[in-house]
Amino acid sequence: MDQYVKSIVPIIEVKYESFTQVEKSIADFFLTNREAVDLSAKSVSEQLFVSMAALSRFAKKCGFQGYREFVYSYKESIAESRFTEVTTSNVRKVLNIYQEIINKAYSLVDEAQMMRIVEYINGAEQVWICGKGSSGLAASEMEERFMRIGVNINSLQEADRIRMCTVFQDKNKLVIGMSLSGESEEILYLLEGAYARGAKTILFTANDKEIFKEFCTEVVLIPSIKYMYGGNIVSPQLPLLAMMDILYYYYVDEDEEKKFMYNNTIQALNDRKKQPHYWIE
């Protein structure tokens, strides 16, 4: 993992919509002026015409104790590999995006949070996972993988079914929603309704908002880049699948029973090929 660098840029990106207008101007500065030399509070406040107190509030919203700690971490990660539109090859262009997603996932993943989610899965009688469009395909993939290691999990993609599923939730259920934009009406409706009924709720999103804290037990931050929402270069599923793989590994790591169960599903598929077809005359 030495080739990856922890960066705070993805944190600024996913929290962007939760910032005030003043804080957004500060965020824009750090997202677009990465070569700036003088990042002292006095210099930045004068350049942006904001108070030093505003810089402090911005830093705290990004998870730091103050502006000084924020700038130190920012400078530490300034050497992070950055995507550039000027490339010599289409192959390199796509692979650069893949690398950026992986680097951002590394910066955003919260290992303690992964362990908490593992406990939620273990403690739930039933897990529901939902998404629409590309997020729905990622939800279906998660159902397939976790079902094979014994998790009672169902995926939902159709809008009406997502809404109707709300009434079946209770304290014994776990509901996972996937929405890169964080604006999918049906997904948020299910999470809010399930939370009100006592279920644990988790949202995978690339757009963190303060309101999510009102009805989400956990918000898992997903990396995103400017090319992603349209899916015109790489699939929007990619960052969701990357984070899902990390969660899956945490769930099965050092659990021989789960590994044994997965191997049994493979054996069951192989056994099917060996069985005689008695129904064929």
Rank of each mutant, 00 (worst) to 15 (best):
Q126Y: 09
V127R: 03
V127P: 00
C130P: 01
C130E: 06
G131V: 12
G131M: 05
G133Y: 00
S134E: 13
S135W: 02
S135C: 07
G136R: 03
G136Q: 07
L137Q: 06
E141H: 12
E143D: 11
E143P: 06
E143F: 00
E143G: 03
E144I: 08
R145M: 07
R145T: 13
R145C: 04
F146M: 13
R148L: 06
R148I: 07
I149P: 02
N152F: 11
I153H: 03
I153A: 00
N154D: 09
N154P: 00
Q157N: 14
Q157M: 12
Q157F: 03
E158H: 10
E158P: 00
A159N: 13
A159F: 10
D160P: 02
R163A: 09
R163L: 09
R163E: 07
C165Y: 12
T166I: 02
V167Y: 11
D170P: 06
K171I: 09
K173A: 12
I176N: 03
M178R: 06
S179I: 08
L180Q: 14
L180R: 04
L180N: 11
G182S: 10
G182W: 01
G182D: 07
G182V: 09
G182E: 06
S184H: 00
S184K: 00
E185S: 14
E185P: 01
E186C: 05
L188A: 08
Y189P: 01
L190I: 09
L191P: 03
G193W: 04
G193H: 06
A194Q: 04
Y195G: 01
Y195A: 08
R197G: 02
G198V: 07
A199K: 07
A199Q: 07
A199G: 11
K200Q: 13
T201C: 02
T201N: 05
I202A: 02
L203D: 03
F204I: 09
T205V: 06
D208L: 14
K209A: 14
E210G: 02
I211P: 00
I211Q: 09
I211C: 05
F212G: 05
F212D: 03
E214N: 15
E214G: 04
F215R: 01
T217Y: 01
T217M: 04
E218P: 08
V219D: 02
V219G: 00
V220A: 02
P223R: 07
P223E: 08
P223V: 08
Y227D: 05
M228Y: 01
M228S: 12
N232A: 14
I233A: 02
I233K: 04
I233S: 06
I233D: 05
S235H: 05
S235Q: 08
S235M: 04
P236E: 06
Q237E: 12
L238T: 15
L238H: 04
L238I: 15
P239V: 11
P239M: 10
M243Y: 07
M243K: 13
M243I: 08
M244A: 15
M244G: 11
M244N: 12
D245C: 07
I246R: 12
Y248K: 11
Y248A: 06
Y250P: 06
Y250L: 00
Y251N: 06
E254I: 01
D255G: 03
D255V: 03
E256H: 08
E256Q: 15
E256V: 14
E256D: 11
E257N: 15
K259Y: 03
K259A: 07
K259D: 04
K259N: 10
K259C: 10
F260M: 09
F260H: 10
M261F: 04
M261E: 11
Y262T: 07
N263C: 05
